[in-house]
């Protein structure tokens, strides 16, 4: 589903940072991959490169066989197939919850109003916001907003979902409700790439864990291997600090 080959990303402003250094990874359809690592390790940058919110400096990234770094690729078509959920939700504050979920369906997928509405209602019910469709995002709690954001991304019928620290901006009591939605999604067989600090989620849901540090993938493996028997010293140090 996703192949990243020798991806480099260098930021030049305000000063030169090698955010990604020779990252090669592949994610199969139906797989849930959790990316963890200390802050500044490049895991968010890696995720954002996968739908070209960040333009990789060099390397190749294939989404469903399409080279997204090729300038001839219509990136908007690719992005419609790749859902993304952000740390700060980024709901559209001037649109109601329902409009947040229907807008891109109508504009990008060219769905009819009724179809978009039906799809949105089904998804909002699924994430537990079915009773608040006409309120505005700023009247919802953080957890509710994030669930709407997940529904918004799912409304495009994406083949892959990218989660960029979806629970990091939430109050502790709201983290659970968002993780529950994500777990349900994983059970349905959605291909997911999740950058998170929630080790419980990684252990329970991930098919594979990727550990990144200083812009490179240090270690990857199953959760059992990763949490019980890590091979790399850097991984051991990281785990000892957070667990």
């Amino acid at each position: 589903m996703i192949q990243a080959k020798n991806v480099y990303k260098t930021f030049y402003a305000p000063h030169e940072i090698n955010a990604l250094v020779d990252v090669t990874a592949s994610i199969e359809a139906g797989e849930v991959v959790v990316v963890i690592g200390p802050s500044g390790s490049g895991k968010s940058t890696f995720l954002r490169c996968l739908n070209r919110l960040e333009q990789a400096t060099s390397g190749h990234i294939f989404i469903d066989g399409i080279d997204i770094l090729d300038q001839r690729t219509d990136i908007n078509k690719v992005r419609a197939e790749v859902g993304m959920v952000f740390q700060s939700f980024n709901l559209f504050p001037h649109k109601s919850v329902l409009e947040n979920v229907t807008l891109a369906q109508k504009v990008v997928r060219k769905r009819k109003g009724d179809d978009a509405h039906e799809k949105a209602m089904a998804l909002l019910e699924k994430v537990g916001i079915g009773d608040k469709i006409n309120v505005y995002p700023d009247q919802l709690s953080g957890g509710q907003q994030q669930r709407v954001a997940i529904a918004r991304a799912l409304a495009m019928n994406p083949k892959v979902m990218l989660f960029d620290e979806p629970t990091s901006a939430l109050d502790p009591e709201m983290i659970g409700e968002v993780l529950d939605v994500m777990k349900a999604l994983a059970k349905e067989g959605m291909t997911m790439v999740v950058v998170t600090h929630e080790m419980g989620f990684a252990r329970e849901v991930a098919d594979r864990v990727i550990f990144m540090d200083a812009g490179a993938i240090v270690e990857e493996g199953t959760p059992e291997h990763f949490f019980t028997n890590p091979t790399h010293d850097r991984t051991k140090l990281f785990l000892s600090q957070i667990l």
């Binding site: 908007n76 992005r79 952000f86 980024n90 559209f92 807008l103 891109a104 990008v108």
Partner: peptide, 27 residues
């Protein structure tokens, strides 16, 4: 307007023009 708004719009597959028209300019 926060950069996240553009990113959210573009990540849904909207073009630059669409994200301007529906998301950024109204705000």
């Amino acid at each position: 307007i926060h950069r996240g708004q553009t990113e959210a719009a573009r990540s849904l597959g909207m073009s630059y023009g669409q994200s301007m028209r529906y998301i950024i300019l109204p705000q």
